[in-house]
Design a protein around this nucleic acid. Structure first.
Lengths: 131, 131
DNA sequence: AATATATATGAGAATTTTTATCTAAATACG
DNA sequence: CGTATTTAGATAAAAATTCTCATATATATT
């Protein structure tokens, strides 16, 4: 019942970039150093965030990482799910789950609880964390 | 970001007992069979729930397991935390956590999000799931 | 007392997830 | 070309999770 360290690292990285000027770059090693993250671990995480469309990266000398969108258009949920996969409070919340008990009353409870959590994370955008 | 199977098994077990008449017993093996849980795994879980004060157990022939309190006085949070330990959405939510970033704005976000989740689970009592 | 039925407990095995590390390759710039 | 940087893949170490087994202990019934 905890986000992984990787997801936390991802959040830190996004936060670092959000605190820079718009479209300003940072290198993975700069972020790693400032945010206390193992460099080659962070490299992977950044690559994932890039595939997920949250970051833009540029290779080579003078390359680096920048936000793909302004901070107010990036929310916590996206970042967490890009790394940890979809939030699922219990196995049975999944659409494809076949419960051995028919009419188990727990499923809607978990679904509602999860929906609340998801909505809260979705409404937490990164502009709220800058300044 | 998921409760463990063990916690889910614990919930199923409590639910099974809540559906019986008040103070009515069931054996671990009955619960295991009906709720599709490996028997010797469930035995451990039941022992933990008993230590946590949620169940009463009686050894020996005609022994078994029963709720320590009526279903309306047992909530989801207690059951989950008895098995998985305290809910903690991110490492930094812990009181003892020393953040390397001073004044990190994420911490209160996680604390509030977690408080919401905890409150919801706390208000989900097992009488709501019977009938 | 003997027997059958239950839970309690400890060791540990198998599997999965998490957290990394290292190396080689691709890319960009000067 | 040479340097700085991300990308990708293999893999390894550690931790957590899931589950099994053997045995001990307690209780009720006969």
């Amino acid at each position: 019942m905890q986000i992984t360290r990787q997801a936390d690292y991802a959040i830190r990285a996004i936060m670092h970039l959000a605190q820079l000027g718009p479209a300003e770059k940072a290198s993975t090693s700069q972020i790693a150093e400032e945010k206390d993250i193992p460099l080659s671990f962070l490299a992977k995480i950044i690559a994932q965030l890039s595939v997920a469309g949250l970051l833009q990266t540029m290779r080579g000398a003078r390359g680096g990482v920048t936000l793909a969108r302004p901070p107010q258009e990036i929310n916590l949920l996206e970042v967490v799910e890009a790394i940890d996969g979809p939030i699922m409070l219990n196995e049975c919340v999944s659409d494809s789950y076949e419960c051995s008990q028919h009419g188990c009353p727990m499923r809607p409870i978990w679904q509602e609880t999860q929906a609340d959590l998801v909505n809260r994370l979705k409404s937490s955008t990164f502009d709220q964390f800058v300044n």
